[in-house]
């Protein structure tokens, strides 16, 4: 056991880093889907925008100024894009997921194509800021410092989001909306404003995830689809509209991806969907699904 742990230590750390990134990406998607029943397939495109913003502002040079600017620009971009998506999907609330999927997927395809026209199809690097742009020793293993920082950022964000959702009146409003939004509306709250706020916040996190993930995965075409798929798997496993579910789902998928690829490289994709199938068979609502028969 200890030997296995030592052999796989780096993979486990990688899994934690992937999990942190996935949580930042997936939590907004989960809340919007769980709360308003709006399926946003444009979520991956927001990540992609973030990744290219990271590339644009770091310009292949390691600098804190460039990296922080990229984070700020991506956050602003995400907020605005989230508001636009929220308004655009408003007429489709309650109209079935296919209509929403067509609209948001269409937006995502246009965004990906525009990015491809502007930046080309080559893989671009996003460079980690100074101090994090090197490897350090962790229990005798050489490991990139940036990934450790990513784990830290993910942990801080997870705690912050959890505190807001569980301990504040704003969080209570969001939880109530996830479980029964009709009754929230019946006490005089305009659902559209709640949805717009959560949409903007979730989209901001997705764009931030793009910048944060840049030094690990770079910026390249097709990344939007990869991360969207992973985020969807995470929220199906974790359960819709649950922050805790998004966190656990992200950590599980992070480990499945990382340990799976390291130990069973031929079956890596199979393991991802094997885990998904297993959860769906045992708990169809996901591990922490909040939809417990409203009404």
């Amino acid at each position: 056991m200890t030997e296995w742990f030592a052999d796989n230590f780096v993979s486990i750390l990688n899994g934690l880093a992937i999990g942190s990134l996935l949580f930042i990406l997936a939590v907004g998607l989960s809340l919007v889907f769980g709360m308003m029943d709006v399926l946003n397939l444009g979520h991956g495109a927001l990540y992609l925008i973030g990744a290219y913003v990271g590339y644009q502002f770091t310009g292949g040079v390691s600098s804190w100024g460039g990296f922080l600017t990229a984070l700020g620009v991506a956050a602003a971009f995400g907020l605005v894009a989230g508001l636009i998506l929220s308004v655009a999907t408003e007429p489709l609330v309650g109209r079935g997921h296919l209509d929403q999927a067509l609209l948001t997927l269409g937006v995502a395809l246009v965004v990906a194509e525009v990015i491809s026209i502007i930046f080309g199809d080559d893989v671009q690097n996003v460079v980690a800021p100074p101090g994090l742009n090197e490897s350090i020793q962790v229990f005798g293993n050489t490991y990139p410092a940036y990934r450790l920082a990513l784990i830290g950022v993910g942990a801080v964000l997870a705690v912050a989001v959890w505190l807001v959702i569980e301990k504040t009146s704003l969080g209570a409003l969001i939880r109530a909306s996830v479980s029964d939004r009709e009754m929230v509306s019946a006490v005089g709250v305009d659902n559209r404003k709640v949805k717009a706020g959560v949409f903007a916040f979730g989209s901001m996190l997705a764009a931030l995830a793009g910048v944060l993930g840049g030094p690990v995965y770079g910026a390249r075409t097709g990344l939007d689809e990869t991360v969207l798929l992973l985020a969807l798997v995470v929220i199906v496993i974790g359960g819709l509209g649950s922050v805790r579910g998004a966190l656990i789902g992200s950590l599980v998928i992070g480990q499945v991806e990382s340990l799976g690829r390291a130990n069973f490289p031929d079956f890596a994709s199979f393991m991802l969907f094997g885990a998904l199938a297993l959860v769906l068979i045992v708990r169809p609502r996901g591990l922490f699904g909040s939809k417990v028969g409203a009404g």
Binding site: R175, V178, S179, D180, E182, M183, A186, V187, N191, S290
Partner: peptide, 22 residues
Amino acid sequence: SDQVARAGLALVPQGRRIWPNL
């Protein structure tokens, strides 16, 4: 319904529809 609520009607719904996680 949020406009109706602000106009002065309030609903005590069938099945109570309490938010279970609040």
